[in-house]
Design a protein around this nucleic acid. Structure first.
Lengths: 133, 133
DNA sequence: ATAGGAGCTCCAGCTACTGGAAGCTCAAGA
DNA sequence: TCTTGAGCTTCCAGTAGCTGGAGCTCCTAT
């Protein structure tokens, strides 16, 4: 199967698939004409990476997960450790963004948004002391 | 004031301040010895940028906000538009991360995390069909 | 035979810094 | 006065994870 086909089936752009090969994340056979040739097992792996990336795992983490995926003898605790760590990171990110949202939301709420130059948003950003709100 | 001092007062590393100068976001006077020389007004602007960045504005957005900050005649609606747009983005990011969290959290919950090789996380990532959840 | 679409490689650029090397300047201590 | 160390300067390179484009070949359909 050519790269375009593998791309459609995995949900990854061809460019990205080539890039993954470049960095040694996934390899592909080559046909006689030099085209990359993907088996359905390759496509599984591509989709595995696509899914992992979309779940917030870094490429390096995908590399680990992929080797755990391939290694049929690995313990589920190894995988759980990585996923749990990632879960904590996601929670931290959510908390951070939520704080951000509240602060910015408050500033926006208090801004008239009219033609006058007074603007609590600018004032909030400029505040020398800690955020008034 | 030297860059180290400005860095301490603005909460930005010296490297970052130099970088901002490089890309024309903020300029600084130079002392006779070639050292950058910051006024307290400069430090205000640095802090303004630091704050804006930490609130999730991109450097390009900071450039806009900075010019709105400097322009005492601008309408607050201009600022509000940018901030509101950013607020929407933050909300989208939070929603996305929350979905992610739920999916990953579910997978982690269902993983024994022991020495056995069966692992719902790996299976979930590998699923050919839509996430069994 | 030819036109197009798809594949190939390689190079450059994106965001927002960060690290490091090589060299200059300044203030304090022996 | 000399030296030492910190702090400043510039410039170059690298980070993550792609993405775009140039210039080429290859395959398929008409």
């Amino acid at each position: 199967m050519n790269i375009g086909n593998a791309a459609r089936q995995s949900g990854l752009p061809p460019k990205t698939i080539r890039y993954y090969e470049d960095i040694g994340l996934l390899t592909a056979d080559r046909a006689a004409n030099g085209y990359r040739d993907y088996s359905s097992e390759d496509v599984h792996r591509l989709r595995f990476v696509q899914r992992s990336r979309s779940l917030g795992f870094s490429v390096e983490e995908c590399r680990q997960l992929l080797s755990l995926y391939t290694d049929r003898d690995r313990a589920s605790s190894d995988v759980k450790a990585i996923a749990t760590e990632k879960l904590g990171e996601i929670d931290r990110k959510i908390a951070e963004l939520t704080g951000l949202r509240d602060m910015l939301g408050h500033l926006v709420e208090n801004c008239h948004g009219d033609a006058r130059p007074e603007c609590p948003i600018i004032d909030g950003l400029a505040a020398t002391t800690r955020q008034t709100a």
